[in-house]
Design a protein around this nucleic acid. Structure first.
Ligand code: FES
Ligand code: FES
Lengths: 146, 146
DNA sequence: TTTAAAAAAGACATTAATATCTTTTTAAAA
DNA sequence: TTTTAAAAAGATATTAATGTCTTTTTTAAA
């Protein structure tokens, strides 16, 4: 469904926010350890996200990653679109050059519905929503193998 | 969402079934032309599917691809699982090693719902359903660029 | 029985995604 | 002002997905 890059991104940002709320700005090695992702690759991803102003970073001693108040308002949709491309929530599930409800592919009915649902969710939720679930249930950012 | 391979597969199988129902067994070059996919790559995909008994083929003059009655009953789910792997409809959207509703990732609630919906659809539909839509609307297997 | 047309097989090429390693820049603290 | 710890940058490596090309096998028809 989502690429590894998107998955590492979401996990990393949730971890960053959770640590920020404890007053800490974690570095990429710590982040990678805590979300179980390859450290250098995670560093690269965060570098990209910082360039795109989706996350903030501080260099030097006591540096690390953090989310400003404004960045905490960015929708998951915007974040994912930065990674997967602008039209991830518009493209045809069957692989046609574009999705056209008036001239649909055989999957359109079902696919467009699901795509729309996902898009709605991503559009109305943020990293904060992921990090601080309303039901207060403990959430997991990594998992041991079976 | 789905890989190119899955998309070419679905488009090719729908085209094959439509032609079969006209009494023809198309070859991979024709198929590729009609679904706008790379010909040799499509040939390879069909070769794989034939090995997996998802499609049938005849070699030699007047050869080509076709779906037997039994093959027309295979669910989209089975077809997609052959390509994307057995656990495509069970895996965690957040990238955790496995999905566990009792110890959920922050996306679980929404993702599992959507995943289940898609799985239900794929499980209860076949290439025949795609090829012969109930509403009789014309369906498209390729599309000119905008 | 030869020829033609088709899929199958195998080898190879390209591209995109994922991953690692090294050097440079920056900033705080000692 | 030197040291240290961090991100940024750049170079490179690996793997997986996608795509192409050539040869072999098979079958039907001429
Ligand atoms: S036309 Fe294929 S999903 Fe809309
Ligand atoms: S635990 Fe992540 S989708 Fe279920």
């Amino acid at each position: 469904m989502f690429s590894k890059t998107s998955q590492y991104t979401l996990r990393a940002l949730v971890y960053i926010l959770l640590e920020n709320s404890k007053g800490r700005n974690p570095g990429f090695r710590e982040i990678a350890r805590e979300i179980d992702s390859p450290a250098e690759f995670t560093g690269k991803i965060l570098q990209d996200l910082a360039r795109k102003k989706i996350v903030s970073s501080a260099k030097g001693k006591h540096g690390g990653f953090f989310l400003t108040e404004a960045q905490r308002q960015i929708s998951l949709r915007t974040i994912i679109e930065h990674i997967e491309g602008e039209n991830i929530f518009q493209s045809c599930g069957f692989g046609l050059k574009y999705c056209d409800a008036a001239n649909p592919c055989p999957l359109h009915e079902e696919y467009a519905t699901i795509r729309e649902q996902l898009q709605q969710y991503m559009n109305s939720h943020t990293i904060s929503h992921l990090a601080f679930q309303t039901d207060g249930q403990r959430i997991y950012l990594k998992r041991e193998a079976l």
